[in-house]
Amino acid sequence: MDLVLQLLFTGIGIGAVYALVALGFVLIFRATNVVNFAQGEFSMVAAYLMVVCVELGLPYWLSFVIALAGMALLGVIFNLGVYYPLRHRTYLPVIIATIGASILLSNSVLAIYGPQPQVLQGWFDTPGIQLGPVYLDSQYLLIIGVTIFLVLFNFWFFEKTLLGKKLQATSQDKEMASLLGISVSTMIMITFIYSAVLGGLAGILVAPVLFVSIQMGSTIALKAFAATIIGGFGDVAGAIVGGLALGVIETFGAAYISVPYKDGFAFLVLIAFLVFRPQGIFGERVAEKA
């Protein structure tokens, strides 16, 4: 039983990381109908910004604010440089452009900062708490807390605020939205900023656990992408549930079946969903969407 609880905690913790990155995927997909393959690199860039600020001797909270502000700026640049020029084309050129951007981002950081992985201290001085037989890593607790908060925040933001509703309208039907006086390009700009900040937040939160390295984003993003498909592409709740499910499944699969095939379980579940329920857990049926 102790073992199960410990695995459950870690599974949810790592799953929350996938969920945070998956959320960024989903928001951009809803707004623009494209998958942003640079979402993982957003996490990586933010973690490096954080490391740079902390190394400069700035307080942790200020470094955090600066890193997130930097991500907002990156969101703007990304929108103007990658999405905006291609917005009238089909989804394919945009997706290719995001892949290009992801290569550019990771190699730029490599060129500027060098290949050495870096250590980023966590928010708390205490590494964790021993709760009976289970060890709770404080950074994972924070990640889980932030994920819960973001679920509630997203619900409130998209359902209860005017801006959120405008964003939803834009993602559902751009022409109709613009006929109603909503500035579509502004809404898409806001979506990119929000996704970049979310991705950055995930990167900063996970950095003390996984270290800061060039490839940290791509490994998480791959799982997060699987999580979005499992949850139902384009669904916020789906991304969260998909992420958590993936984290728990791979942790238990590793513990009880095989450690070397840990990543295999995640993708086995992904394949199963693609075959039997391609719309994901929360996805609408294709017919409804058409």
């Binding site: 695995l7 990381v17 490839q215 450690v259």
Partner: peptide
């Protein structure tokens, strides 16, 4: 004798196996 795949983000199952 426990193997693991490179670039794992979490080693809890491995550590628990060592412990047990």
């Amino acid at each position: 004798d426990q193997g693991y795949a490179n670039q794992s983000q979490d080693f809890t199952p491995v550590v628990l196996a060592v412990k047990q």
